[in-house]
Computed example of a mutant assay.
Amino acid sequence: AKHSKKPATAASSQTTVPGPSYSQRLDALQAADDIAQRQHLDRDWVRQTLGQANYVAAIAKAVTPPAVGVAKNWQLYRSRFVEPLRIRAGVAFWLAHRDTLQRAERETGVPADIMVGILGVETIYGQQTGNFRVLDALATLAFDFPASHPRAVERSAYFRTELEQFLSWTFSSGRDPLALKGSYAGAMGLPQFMPSSWASYAVDFDGDGVVDLLGSPADAIGSVANYLKTFNWQPGLATHFPLEFDASKLDMAALMAPDILPTFSVENFQAKGVVLGGEALKHTGKLALIELQNGDAASSYVAGTDNFYAITRYNWSSYYAMAVIELGQAVAQAMPH
């Protein structure tokens, strides 16, 4: 799971030319010593491993924010994910793993179409899991996160924590830290879990004694479901409801203030100018106003529930969450009956 506002894409498949290694960087070597002490790892192994990491300019570029004034475009974003190739791959994946998806849904309450949507948006069901060395990605972003980013200090600290988790995990599991490939952010496997998410939420769903998100679709399915369950997925609850606005009562500033965190009761929502109907009127939980910008055209809006918010805990983007939902729905509709 990726806590990133960057639009999700299937992990980059580009080949990169490695830059200088971190073997002579004093800050990296000091970090290696600190990691070894905190995690009770062999100091020489951590130093030697981190010393073989390379700075990759393409990774730093990938996390650099777009130029100010570049409008978000939901329809363009959607077209990258809800498209024939992913839908066909999703149908094949669902048919191949129907029993596993049903078991995960039964045990967690997370619907199969949501799990299928996430795995399709993330990696096209394992087809594109990334060609960056995870060690390079995490080291680049830990020690050379672009200073132009408005949250550079915070993000650099986050990736130092992920680097520590990665080194601890590879040391204890015996995996080769130099061989693992992933996204530009260091996310791995079919569900693109960061090292900390692997440690906290990944499960051995096929029962073979090993948690393997790289090669086991069952473990990927179970881990995605477990992740959403942990972030308070509520079985049977819709992710969102359609809405309209009553211009005479509309208080857009108040509605947008909490961002995507469900805050408003149905009554409060309606008092601020949102018109709901059907199932939405029976909703007893909180709602959030979700805005999806469409470039120069008018924005789209929906009423997001706690389950919409749960998907954004996987990737901090409403566009990502809606792409997951709509890809899952499209695959479900394309399934043979």
Rank of each mutant, 00 (worst) to 15 (best):
Q30T: 12
S12W: 03
S216Q: 05
V203W: 03
K61E: 08
N131H: 13
A218M: 10
H40R: 14
A137V: 06
I59P: 00
E279A: 13
A310T: 13
S318R: 12
E122A: 03
V266I: 11
P235M: 04
S4M: 05
V68Y: 08
D136L: 02
T123W: 03
E267H: 11
L281M: 15
A36V: 08
A253N: 14
I221N: 00
S248K: 13
L255E: 02
R88V: 08
L178T: 15
A28W: 00
G174M: 05
T230R: 08
K282E: 15
S173A: 13
T305D: 04
Q39N: 10
F231I: 01
Q24N: 14
Y309R: 05
L135F: 07
P150S: 09
H3E: 12
G277P: 02
Q128P: 08
A36H: 01
P235G: 05
E164L: 05
K5C: 12
A31M: 13
G328N: 02
S196T: 13
T161Y: 09
V46L: 06
I260A: 09
R160G: 10
L287V: 08
V210L: 14
S248H: 12
K181L: 15
K2R: 13
F231V: 00
K249D: 14
D296Q: 13
T140F: 07
S12G: 14
K72V: 06
M115I: 10
D113S: 12
Q192D: 08
F166P: 01
A253F: 14
D42H: 14
G174S: 05
S216W: 03
I221A: 01
S23F: 06
G186W: 00
A67K: 13
I59S: 01
V17K: 12
Y319S: 09
I311V: 10
E164S: 15
E105R: 03
S216I: 01
R160A: 02
N315P: 05
K282Q: 15
K272C: 09
M322R: 01
A71M: 14
Y158T: 12
V211A: 04
H337S: 10
F205E: 00
A288V: 10
N73W: 11
L138M: 11
K181H: 13
S223T: 07
L237C: 05
A179T: 07
S4T: 07
P217H: 03
F264E: 04
A334V: 13
A62T: 04
Q102R: 11
D33Y: 11
P65F: 09
H40W: 07
Q75H: 13
V203H: 07
A142W: 01
Y309A: 04
Q48R: 15
I118N: 01
A185E: 02
V116G: 03
W45L: 11
L178V: 07
V275G: 05
I124R: 15
R106E: 15
A8I: 00
A280N: 04
G209S: 13
A31W: 03
Q14W: 11
P65Y: 08
D33S: 10
P18D: 04
L190N: 01
Q234A: 14
D259R: 14
Q30A: 15
V134S: 02
Q270V: 09
T9M: 15
S183Q: 06
G51T: 06
V56Q: 05
L141W: 02
D219K: 02
L41K: 08
T140Y: 05
G117C: 03
V46G: 00
H240E: 07
L190A: 02
L167P: 00
S12T: 07
L243M: 11
W169E: 08
K6P: 01
